[in-house]
Design a protein around this nucleic acid. Structure first.
Lengths: 128, 128
DNA sequence: TTATTTGTACACCAATGACAGACAAACAGC
DNA sequence: GCTGTTTGTCTGTCATTGGTGTACAAATAA
């Protein structure tokens, strides 16, 4: 499921947080569900448990998890956060840059278009 | 045009490279055109000229620019690079995570869908 | 009680990002 | 030609950060 790319320049703890957030947004977990312990997930991914803990803390800070000692990480019912004003900009620009990188690496416009449409369609279905 | 977010965790030199790459892919520059000197762009952005130089070097390494001392940075006709096999994965996953972040920050599905469709449309027109 | 589990705190080390400053070569003006 | 300026590069420095090692405290299990 989660996959870590040690060669990437994006830090491992953030890769973990990003991956888990995607699962959470997609609704693969419900409130009350538990995530694996930091140590088991750490072994699973081949990283240090503190690295996983950092990812958990980040998600907890975003309101996704409740972290109680020895109780594990429990998914929380999440209230919507106040919507920062620059959020659109924080989506549009990265998307544009991501597309630029993809084109620069040789991906075809046609393939990218299909991928974008597929994503839009998944969103429309309430998924991710 | 280019805008730098010092608070971001993505390094400044990479922000510059990303932004310029997007311009290049979009076709806002043609072969033979010149980019501003490292120092002028640096002053323009409020960073050190070495930081800009690093961004230029990265783009030169990708085949976009030719860097000659005292000649400035000249846009090159770019030959396609060999297509790495994991490229699709390197687009799909980041897109998914970007969408997850956006949803998590409160952007509506409707808005995101519109944005995706708009991007797809721009791609279809040959733009970015 | 005792051993185990589990998230946390703290220190350490390597890597990296941004900057400062100096340098060498090409150019502009004369 | 000569001289001063321009311009990308090189080297070193400093602070920050990512990942890990290790110990700890509290809850649980036997």
């Amino acid at each position: 499921m989660l996959q870590i790319d040690l060669a990437s320049n994006v830090p491992v703890y953030e890769q973990i947080a990003n991956g888990l957030r995607a699962e959470l947004v997609a609704g693969h977990f419900g409130p009350g569900d538990k995530l694996p312990t930091v140590r088991t997930l750490a072994i699973d991914l081949g990283v240090h448990h503190n690295t996983v803990a950092q990812a958990y803390r980040q998600l907890a800070g975003e309101g996704w998890l409740e972290l109680k000692r020895h109780r594990g990480a429990v998914i929380q019912e999440r209230r919507l956060r106040p919507n920062r004003p620059d959020v659109p900009e924080r989506f549009t620009r990265p998307l544009r840059e991501l597309l630029a990188k993809a084109l620069a690496e040789g991906l075809s416009r046609k393939w990218l278009i299909r991928e974008l449409m597929a994503s839009a369609h998944r969103l429309q279905e309430g998924g991710l």
